Computed example of a mutant assay.
Amino acid sequence: MNDVTLRLSSLNKTYLQGTPGELQVLRGADLELRAGEAVALVAPSGAGKSTLLHIAGLLDTPDAGGVEIAGRNASGKGDRTRTAIRRQDVGFVYQFHHLLPEFTALENIVLPQLANGTSEKAAQERSMQLLDRVGVAARADHRPAALSGGEQQRVAFCRALANAPRVLLADEPTGNLDPETSDQVFATLMALVRDEGLSALIATHNLELAARMDRVLRLDGGVLRPAE
């Protein structure tokens, strides 16, 4: 049985800029991410980690190479197909929570489910289950501004998992938190990854957190290599 949930094949990406004219951030990057696997992505700032995550999550397109998610080839597909794959099979977590400020924690998790065709009752039940698992169910009716940084990021995790994706992509998910809160929030994230049985590609500068994952990959010269 093929348990590869994310396959990146020979990705190339070049950006045009003033001087020297071109910046090639990906040069044939390859990756296979399997079900239930948590992989750390490390690299210096500006090396292309966010670009790789955006291409993997179908928010950007490579100049060359392929992206396959949950057995579906997204390469060359139109915006509608790419959006459907992303909505169904990919969850995103960023350094900043990006919760909608005018909605409660619960509503922030319900909304993506409604957009995916889930009934309101089922969406509310799923949302409360997720909030309970990350320890913030009691804050379900609070808006983001009334939550601590750690609580905000836990809610962001729940929103990313609202539609039960197969792949989770996270870009410095604890980067805005103090060390103690970062450790607690990371433990929560890993518990969700294991409990949901999904695959996670997590970009981080924190080498201690990276070492707690199944593998560590370094983006070096536009190519993914095992970290030494």
Rank of each mutant, 00 (worst) to 15 (best):
V39H: 08
V39D: 01
S45R: 07
S45G: 04
S50I: 02
L53M: 09
A56M: 04
A56L: 06
T61N: 03
A64E: 14
G71Q: 10
R72A: 15
N73M: 11
A74D: 04
S75F: 03
S75I: 04
S75C: 02
G76K: 14
K77W: 00
D79F: 08
T81Y: 09
R82G: 11
R86T: 15
R87I: 09
V90M: 11
G91C: 11
G91E: 14
F92N: 15
V93P: 03
Y94F: 12
Q95S: 15
Q95T: 12
F96M: 14
H97T: 07
H98W: 12
T104C: 06
I109F: 01
V110H: 07
P112I: 07
P112H: 14
Q113F: 04
Q113W: 00
T118H: 11
T118E: 14
E120M: 06
K121E: 10
A122F: 04
L130I: 05
L130R: 11
D132S: 08
V134L: 03
A137T: 04
A137C: 02
A138Q: 12
A140F: 05
H142K: 13
A146F: 05
L147P: 09
F157A: 10
C158T: 10
A162P: 00
N163M: 13
R166L: 00
V167D: 02
V167W: 01
D171K: 02
E172Y: 05
E172F: 01
P173G: 12
